[in-house]
């Protein structure tokens, strides 16, 4: 049987804009994925704990606060410390062009900015990655 992709969607830091992440959650659900919605105002530590306990394949972070260059590296670090470097990380929200290569160099798999079609996100997540150990 085809196993559904498990993805945690979360917003980290002081950022109350959750319309976008909820639209993405709905689209991924309709594409047959199991979406664990972790909600607003999460700390990087709590997000990583959620990813660990849920045994997720992916983590999707949404940031519209401008704090992405602080919070995203922090999440990536804690993921590594928790022995979860194999979990793919995608980021959405308001991310300036100049920061995109920096974030991908740190290990973010893909950044989806405003205007991204939901089909593109689904297609990206459904492209096979190397199997987790």
């Amino acid at each position: 049987m085809d196993q559904p992709i498990r993805i945690v969607l979360a917003k980290v830091g002081l950022d109350g804009h959750d319309r976008g992440i909820k639209v993405v959650a709905r689209a991924l659900r309709d594409a047959g994925m199991h979406v664990i919605y972790a909600g607003l105002w999460q700390t990087p530590e709590a997000v990583v704990r959620t990813v660990a306990d849920e045994d997720a394949d992916w983590l999707g972070l949404s940031l519209l606060s401008g704090a992405h260059m602080t919070l995203v590296p922090r999440v990536l670090d804690i993921l590594k410390q928790a022995d979860l470097a194999n979990v793919g990380v995608i980021v959405g929200g308001i991310i300036p062009e100049a920061d995109i290569p920096k974030l991908t160099a740190m290990g973010v798999a893909k950044i989806f900015g405003p205007g991204t079609s939901l089909d593109d996100i689904v297609a990206f997540l459904k492209t096979p990655r190397e199997h987790k150990p």
Partner: peptide
């Protein structure tokens, strides 16, 4: 679709 939106844990409070 076989999909699911699992939206319970965010109401339970986040912790480490």
């Amino acid at each position: 679709s076989g999909g699911a939106l699992l939206g319970d844990r965010f109401r339970m409070g986040s912790s480490t």
